[in-house]
């Protein structure tokens, strides 16, 4: 059996939390684009794809920045993994909700 070593869980927590932040951002911008025409137009980064190009690019950039920030904060730390995990699941759930048509179409369009 492998010898148990003390695990510094900061980098894992940073990666997991950032994925939740990225998911939440995607849901948030999907709903915002539906609700606010100005946001929808601003997210049209690439015309053949339309606002989807902006929503996904913003989500990926926010995800990577959040990951870098939390990694630099937690790389040598032991964090409360359960709290981070619950926060991540809540953000993923909100991200899923924000990308669900029945939900975001309630905000217009």
């Amino acid at each position: 059996m492998a010898k148990k070593e003390t695990l510094n869980n900061g980098p894992a927590a940073a990666a997991i939390l950032a994925s939740g932040i990225g998911s939440l951002t995607l849901g948030l911008f999907t709903t915002l684009a539906q609700a606010v025409t100005l946001v929808n137009d601003a997210l049209n980064f690439y015309d053949p794809v339309g606002p989807l190009s902006g929503k996904t690019t913003v989500a990926v950039v926010v995800w990577l920045v959040a990951w870098a920030v939390f990694y630099s904060l937690w790389r040598n730390q032991q964090v409360n993994f359960t709290k981070v995990y619950i926060a991540t699941l809540i953000m993923i759930a909100l991200g899923l909700l924000g990308t669900f048509p029945t939900f975001f179409e309630a905000f217009g369009g």
Partner: peptide, 27 residues
């Protein structure tokens, strides 16, 4: 829209797996 959640979540998992390796067995 929902498809884009997949690579974000899968990349986080892949990173943690390669970062921690066999130590994950005890976590």
């Amino acid at each position: 829209h929902v498809a884009w959640l997949s690579p974000i979540l899968a990349t986080a998992v892949a990173y943690v797996v390669i970062r921690y390796g066999s130590k994950l067995a005890h976590e």
